[in-house]
Design a protein around this nucleic acid. Structure first.
Lengths: 237, 237
DNA sequence: CGTGCTAATATGTTTAGACTTATATGTGGT
DNA sequence: ACCACATATAAGTCTAAACATATTAGCACG
């Protein structure tokens, strides 16, 4: 029987990706070692060079291979692997966990931008933005506290939205797609207000996610999300 | 002048990606709307269909487009964007910040695996693994505290390594490439031991990263990384 | 009015070939 | 030994064409 081992799923490129990954993980090809060039692999697997190229580019993005023109392809010495996580809409995140979603707008005002946010956004301090605080609940228990600054000049039409019914997170995702985003994870102790809104005790350790987004007309919004105690955010490779 | 606007960088596929992204962000193509099919776009941009396909696949991975056979390509209604961050070797992370790296092995032993880690790893509780604690320093100040369990059966040769000189993070990255990893971010208050080793006060809020890796022969290692107070981890889109 | 088949269609994937580009390496001159 | 330059090489990109596959839409039939 000369049957080809079953393509694990997907096509030939996916098969080659898995096979090459296996050879690296099982040390058939060692760290720093040069692997056969695209033409040789194409011959070995009986496919076109473009197919091998596609497979190897995937592994290079993954960080397992280093590829350079003329120098060939090598197994990465210090594989800097990348992990990714998705940034869903809070409501969908809550509902995906089987809880019923609700939210409450705590405050909304037009306020001059404080110094510490100005640098992050790249706007002059004192410029008037929309500032709002809201709590997102799952089954009526606090899930996430958000403290948000919105640049109205980047989002025309925002003045007319009633955020008591529509939460800002969802409205912005649908109405202000961004070009670039920056996310910062940190931990801090709950202040008095954080604790009250999240219905927990002060000094409780909280996972904080700061997110700032831009489009080509400048910064859109910056938001500090404080998760309820015990929340775990997951990412995979 | 009929000059084509300069390809921003990279080739035609990259140009089409950027142009389509622009049309979405500037609302020329609205959420949920069907966009022209690959053949039409190929004609518009004067390229082969494969080139358009590559460009649109990138945007689909990014979460901006939804594509389905026969149904065509639509602008995503609730764009679930993905962010990614790289997982460097601790030493490189410290040195990249311009600090001098050092580390200290606090303890190392062969111990039965406690219940709470067993589930995560998928091994029976009580199985004997290597357990070690170490601190990574930048300019002699604690940077990260690591509490690690290593499965010796997944990493032959580990018995002979002297982790006083080589840290486990670096050794494993180079000698035990993984197939799959899971990362969990959370926040917790420093315990007494955490505080002593990180040279901070108990109850201080700490950013915690739990990482577990597997290859095809089973789990390799699980590690709890506690960062020094004030540490911020950054991810981008 | 639904149900199941069929055909049309848009994306998914691969191929062989050509051309481009970065760069490692060898060569010759000083 | 050192430098400048030419050359070969391997990856990067694109093309035109073909075939594969999922899914919608229409149609015939009960």
């Amino acid at each position: 029987m000369t049957e080809r081992e079953a393509l694990p799923s997907g096509g030939k490129a996916a098969y080659i990706t898995e096979e090459v990954r296996r050879r690296i993980i099982e040390k058939e090809w060692r760290q720093g070692e040069r692997i056969p060039d695209e033409a040789e692999l194409a011959a070995e697997f009986g496919v076109a060079r473009a197919t091998v190229n596609k497979a190897l580019q995937m592994l290079a993005e993954e960080g397992l291979l280093d590829r350079r023109r003329r120098a060939g392809t090598r197994v990465a010495v210090n594989p800097v692997r990348k992990a990714s996580f998705s940034i869903p809409i809070v409501r969908e995140q809550v509902e995906a966990a089987g809880m019923s979603y609700s939210h409450r707008l705590i405050s909304q005002s037009r306020s001059p931008l404080p110094e510490r946010h100005a640098a992050r956004l790249g706007l002059p301090a004192g410029e008037v933005l929309i500032h709002q605080r809201a709590v997102h609940y799952g089954d009526r228990r606090p899930f996430q506290l958000e403290d948000r600054w919105i640049n109205p000049r980047a989002v025309p039409g925002i003045e007319t939205v009633d955020f008591h019914h529509m939460n800002a997170n969802e409205w912005l995702v649908r109405n202000a797609p961004y070009l670039r985003a920056e996310l910062n994870f940190s931990a801090c102790s709950a202040g008095v207000r954080d604790a009250r809104l999240l219905e927990t005790k002060p000094e409780q350790a909280l996972l904080i996610l700061n997110r700032t987004t831009w489009n080509d007309s400048g910064p859109i919004t910056t938001v500090r999300l404080a998760f309820h105690p015990g929340y775990v955010m997951t990412a995979t490779t």
